[in-house]
């Protein structure tokens, strides 16, 4: 097919847009980051070497390419600090995604069983927190969780604790913040799949002797698996790279990878190591995406 025919219709031209977007705003910047991750830090402007300068000719360019090395990646693999940071990020993301699923599923399920006219209202209630700045909401949690904050006051008034509990700068505070912030991302895809389930399927299950619980486990849950996958990915991936919430709510003892990256970039001015961290993070996050994509494809092939 000739190029002219490929771009013949506006619809086809529009189909090119996402690829152009990916090229301009993802692949190109990622190329820069990848290149910097293969460089080494220097006290200069820019703070890394080698620098590609086409004006200096092909020989200089060849020398620059030869100067690239995997040293930064070797550092990441050999230093426990980075490995632990990655591990902690993955563990935190796994734990919070599990909590999010445990809380989000019942909420989404409840929403999908509401009378049709109440469902849009429930949906708006889930989205409403987005109308306030994310940062303001996290600071609000600092207010609630601090030494003489609302939470401690309520717990003391109910005589559940005798002295104020230390919440801030703990993992508990971080998980509260993470779950609170990401809950809509878990609820919305779950709700979308649950609401799509044909009520006749639930009736068919009941008709064939399935109790409510059996029907839930054998019909509702399997049919909502795509929603569970989408919700889990939408939460897991950004949480792995999360910076603000752990920085404001958790202690500084063991940073998540996002915090480590920030540290390298702004405190140590080590752009190459920061870039290497970002590259490894991206590769790490591609893994669950690829698994999800493969499962989805197998599901589609299975039904054909």
């Amino acid at each position: 097919m000739s190029g002219r025919r490929l771009f013949a219709t506006p619809a086809r031209r529009a189909a090119v847009a996402p690829f152009l977007w990916m090229l301009l705003f993802f692949l190109l910047p990622f190329g820069f980051v990848l290149k910097i991750s293969l460089s080494h830090a220097v006290m200069a402007q820019p703070p890394y070497l080698p620098v590609f300068d086409p004006a200096e000719g092909i020989a200089a360019l060849k020398a620059a390419i030869a100067a690239l090395s995997l040293d930064n990646f070797r550092l990441l693999a050999s230093d426990h600090f980075y490995v632990l940071s990655y591990l902690r990020s993955v563990v935190v993301a796994l734990v919070s995604t599990s909590i999010l699923l445990a809380i989000g599923y019942p909420i989404a399920y409840g929403m999908s069983r509401l009378p049709a006219r109440w469902q849009p209202i429930a949906m708006i209630l889930v989205i409403v927190p987005f109308w306030t700045s994310f940062l303001v909401r996290v600071y609000a949690w600092i207010n609630i969780l601090q030494h003489d904050g609302i939470l401690n006051n309520v717990l003391m008034a109910l005589r559940l604790v005798s002295a104020p509990v230390v919440w801030l700068s703990t993992d508990a505070a971080m998980y509260i913040g993470l779950v609170y912030s990401y809950l809509p991302f878990m609820i919305l895809p779950l709700y979308a799949t649950l609401a799509k389930i044909d009520p006749a399927l639930l009736e068919a299950s009941a008709d064939l002797g399935g109790s409510r619980l059996t029907t839930f486990w054998l019909v509702t849950v399997p049919l909502s698996l795509p929603g569970i996958g989408a919700g889990a990915l939408l939460c897991f991936i950004p949480i792995v790279g999360e910076f603000v919430i752990p920085d404001l709510l958790a202690g500084s003892a063991s940073p998540m990878i996002g915090q480590t990256l920030w540290l390298e970039f702004f405190n140590n001015h080590d752009w190459p190591v920061a870039s290497a961290i970002a590259v490894v993070l991206l590769v790490l996050l591609l893994a669950p995406l690829l698994v999800y994509e493969r499962v989805q494809r197998r599901r589609l092939e299975g039904t054909r």
């Binding site: 044909d198 006749a200 399927l201 068919a204 008709d207 002797g209 109790s211 019909v219």
Partner: peptide, 30 residues
């Protein structure tokens, strides 16, 4: 008496077959 305790079965208008189960598992469900 709730549907799952009735000795009555229904064939639904759009069949309401479980899309995630095979023909065998659909029939074996009850």
């Amino acid at each position: 008496v709730p549907p799952h305790r009735r000795p009555v079965n229904m064939m639904f208008q759009n069949y309401a077959l479980f899309p995630h189960l095979s023909v065998r598992d659909n029939i074996a469900f009850g």
